[in-house]
Design a protein around this nucleic acid. Structure first.
Length: 197
DNA sequence: CGAAGGATTTTCT
DNA sequence: GAAAATCCTTCGT
């Protein structure tokens, strides 16, 4: 199922609904096990915090579309756009379990040893699915990247976001959601301060 | 097993 | 010019 009205709600409400959902692209399907919510306003960790720019434009657009961005010079991350047109919010896809096209995903993730690592982490998930920057703005209902939401909600846990620099990284925004006990949930902790800036 | 450093380029100030 | 919603390798315990 794909319910755009459901996605038009704030990302903090949408995030837990996406756990257990299945995203399919380029002949690989992933069942989401970990996500993070980002808001445009009132969220220093969001790209849209300082208003609309060329990069984050699709976050202000129609819900249910794909928002991709390039970060750390070598990684692509993917989000599901939430909230009505004109309001920026999104859900970062942090990790998932490859349930279809495992062979293909394994070929793309040459550095991966175990199958549980294929989509464990935002940039890894994107690579496993074969998504690139050019896929930003794709409609997840009719494009070549599809989202299939779970028919019923699953049990989940909620806690502090990881990897967010600055004020947004504080545990004041406990907007990370995951399926407890799942081996594909990202193991990364908040990193120590970086040296080279 | 855990901690730390380095890579690399798009985007915005 | 500086920072960035990360990942991988290497080093130390």
């Amino acid at each position: 199922m794909f319910d755009r009205a459901l996605l038009a709600r704030p990302s903090v409400e949408v995030a837990p609904l996406l756990l257990g959902a299945i995203i399919t692209a380029n002949d690989v399907s992933v069942r989401l096990t970990e996500v993070e919510a980002y808001l445009g306003a009132d969220d220093p960790g969001s790209h849209a915090f300082r208003g609309q720019t060329g990069r984050n434009g699709v976050m202000f657009g129609e819900p249910g579309h794909l928002y991709t961005y390039f970060t750390y010079g070598m990684h692509v991350c993917a989000n599901v756009v939430c909230s009505p047109v004109g309001t920026a919010s999104g859900v970062l896809l942090r990790a998932g379990e490859v349930i279809d096209g495992v062979e293909l995903a394994r070929m793309r993730r040459t550095t991966t040893r175990s199958d549980a690592d294929l989509a464990r982490g935002p940039a890894r998930l994107v690579v496993a699915l074969g998504i690139t920057l050019a896929d930003g703005g794709t409609d997840l209902e009719s494009g070549h990247v599809r989202l299939e939401m779970a028919s019923k909600s699953v049990a989940f846990e909620q806690g502090a976001r990881t990897g967010v620099s600055g004020a947004g990284g504080s545990s004041h925004f406990p907007w990370r959601f995951w399926i407890p006990g799942d081996p594909t949930v990202s193991p990364y902790k908040a990193h120590a301060p970086k040296k080279r800036r």
